[in-house]
Design a protein around this nucleic acid. Structure first.
Lengths: 132, 132
DNA sequence: TATAAATCTTGACTTAGTCTAAATCGAGAC
DNA sequence: GTCTCGATTTAGACTAAGTCAAGATTTATA
């Protein structure tokens, strides 16, 4: 059910060792990996997988809605194994990205924006994470 | 007062023809230009200005708070001549970015995020602009 | 005017990502 | 089991954003 093969099959993507390595790597990630992070991780599972295949597979997964993609960081797109709606907090010092549960924030006034059809939205916060 | 020379002087940046061309180009922009957009525009005012100088100057302007920088779009950072707080709406079809006035939206619940010190935030919306 | 400091240019370099052509793999037909 | 064709993968060339270093030029100041 939650193994890479079934996940790929459910989405109509033919499972291959390379794709499985990518899926396992990105879904296991607790952070917001870049394509290159996923490439490195996938390499440890399938040492011959190529950069192009990693990009192709990640884009496939995004299309199928299995992972998210965020452009919230300079230099590279990041992928997001958490597909539930959520907001983001970025620590300016470390660059770390944290998920903020959807129901912790409420955005009011969207319905007054008559000129825009809002398909999705999120709050992006920047600052510093407090360490106890 | 609002001419490029005074603006640069007020920020303690030595005015040069190159920097003036960059400042005039980016401040005159009604959109959210990329560094390359600014480079092209600045070239028409100062045909010898180099890419490196455009990047240097834009970064200087951001440091001094004269313009904003946003990483909301794939592929390239965009600059923002509007330094007032505002939110953003991105048209998924055209890639156009629109400013949403700060007071049109209200974000509630931020004070409950005890683990984070929020220095800035904004709402990012995606969808389609309605054309009448 | 002379000199030092600041600035600018050029071009090499790095990194993210795409593209292509050739090699390889795999599922179904027989 | 093996053949064949389409799907997939690979390596490497390529593009675009952005940085960097070294030498050239400009500017400030004495």
């Amino acid at each position: 059910m939650t193994d890479a093969i079934s996940i790929l099959r459910q989405c109509g993507i033919q499972p291959t060792p390379q794709r499985m390595a990518v899926v396992e790597s990105v879904l296991a990630s607790k952070t917001h990996p870049t394509a290159d992070d996923v490439f490195s991780a996938a390499r440890t599972k399938c040492p011959t997988v190529s950069r192009a295949t990693v990009y192709n597979t990640l884009n496939l997964l995004v299309e199928k809605g299995l992972i998210g993609m965020q452009t919230i960081k300079e230099g590279a797109v990041v992928f997001d194994p958490n597909t539930q709606k959520h907001h983001h907090f970025i620590d300016d010092e470390t660059g770390e990205i944290f998920d903020i549960p959807w129901d912790q924030l409420e955005v009011k006034g969207k319905d007054k924006l008559r000129n825009f059809e809002i398909l999705e939205f999120q709050v992006i916060m920047r600052g510093r994470r407090k360490r106890k």
